[in-house]
Design a protein around this nucleic acid. Structure first.
Lengths: 246, 246
DNA sequence: CGTTTGCTTGAAGTAGGTCAATGTGAGTGG
DNA sequence: CCACTCACATTGACCTACTTCAAGCAAACG
């Protein structure tokens, strides 16, 4: 997966912009060892102190928060290629907990080294900022979904958002993808119960919007689904025209 | 409100860090005329093109999105001192619409000029990034509230978040504040109907958690309210230790 | 003053939650 | 290769937090 330069982060960011050797060097030097975790392992907990951010090499994870009485809200899903935690540089405590949804491999980087980026490579700072903004837009979509959509529409949203995300790194994905999360976890993402997630999934299947086979999901009428919830794909190319030159 | 340097943005950012004259100059030069709008006026619409960001001089506004069938979700509230729209630099189209909740005064700045900041003042870039991250944390809290909290808890969250925000710029605010939004707008923020917002507000009042008088709200048992929903104040001082020196 | 906008209140309906039981496939130990 | 377990999916019966609809009321406003 790491070709030549041997850094996850460099590979990830190179996808969006050309990096000169200086920037690459900066970043590559930050990388620490790889870490492997089982499924359902808490990598870090909310309101704990954590010095690293992570690039996902393989496997899915999610960030979540708990309410005092045990209710849980999953805030975001992380896929291979994602950078996790660089929104948390500002606070000394994590705002969410991080858990693996299946066996994963992560590359940790020390957060503090990020100031090097802001200091010496404004162009890279602008890129990080842009990635943050994209996540911001997705949160807005999520709030829209949770505030004003029915269970069926929310699940439709989750499917569309997930497949759009996967298409960044795999353009040939077609309409079938693997969704390695339990129905309880889907409920915790969308503010529903596992029971009702199940009933809604089956109703979507019966209405032939989707097909399911174990962890695999196929969207049978994606265009219609998009229209139903007025879906906007946030993963299309970013506007980098305003970036500094260097 | 603008003292000496005559720029809203400079004043706003100076609150968080010292700016040298170069940076101040950069920013001040960007400022265009002030604009005044009535209550319930749409300043810009989602998926339209918009070249400006705004600093709020006076009045409250909110960002929102609509669903095709007319359902509406209010995404964030903007208060005097807020910078609106600098998350939208990355996309060419606005992700949300902006509307005044009462008569307002805004200072527009051209978005494109932001690259000057990333280019020449990394420290300022880091500050903007930090403000973005704070908004990010608030969105996470919002998703947690919308996904897993009852109507009463959501309204409690809104009250606590609002008064915490107001305390940044007015430390002597006590436990009473003005909430210049209708109950329908509160519902559109929290994913509820105006009817149920009303019933919940009255129930909170009857239980003596809050007192209401027109637009004015008093929190009678703020500590208890905070504990009830495990509230975290995101507006306490930011960690600026990792910022670049210049 | 008449109109509009927002607040209040009650009655009736429903989307989704809760509780509880059963099914099922992957792993695991013997 | 079988029995046991455990985590998840599935299903049904019942319940409730919210919505919808509808009507009255009060303050602001042209």
């Amino acid at each position: 997966m790491t070709s030549g330069n041997n850094s996850c982060l460099v590979e990830k960011l190179s996808y969006y912009m050309d990096l000169d050797d200086g920037a690459k060097g900066h970043l590559a030097r930050l990388e620490k060892d790889q870490q492997f975790y089982d499924s359902q392992h808490d990598i870090y907990m909310g309101s704990s102190h954590n010095e690293n951010l992570f690039v996902v090499k393989s496997g899915w994870l999610y960030s979540y928060t708990d309410l005092p009485d045990g209710r849980r809200q999953v805030v975001s899903l992380h896929h291979p290629g994602d950078v996790i935690g660089f929104m948390d540089i500002v606070f000394d405590e994590n705002t969410t907990s991080l858990r693996s949804a299946e066996p994963v491999c992560l590359c940790p980087f020390p957060k503090k080294s990020l100031n090097v980026i802001f200091d010496e490579t404004p162009r890279l700072a602008a890129l990080l900022f842009s990635l943050a903004v994209r996540e911001h837009a997705i949160f807005i979509d999520m709030i829209r979904a949770m505030g004003r959509m029915s269970a069926r529409e929310r699940i439709t949203y989750l499917m569309l958002n997930t497949i759009s995300r996967l298409r960044i790194t795999n353009t040939k994905i077609g309409s079938t993808f693997r969704l390695p999360v339990t129905q309880t976890e889907i409920g915790d993402m969308l503010g529903l119960t596992n029971v009702y997630v199940n009933k809604t999934l089956r109703s979507l299947e019966e209405a032939e919007y989707i097909k399911r086979d174990g962890q695999w999901v196929t969207l049978l009428r994606e265009d219609e689904m998009r229209k139903d919830i007025d879906f906007t794909d946030r993963y299309v190319a970013m506007d980098t025209s305003w970036f500094p030159d260097k």
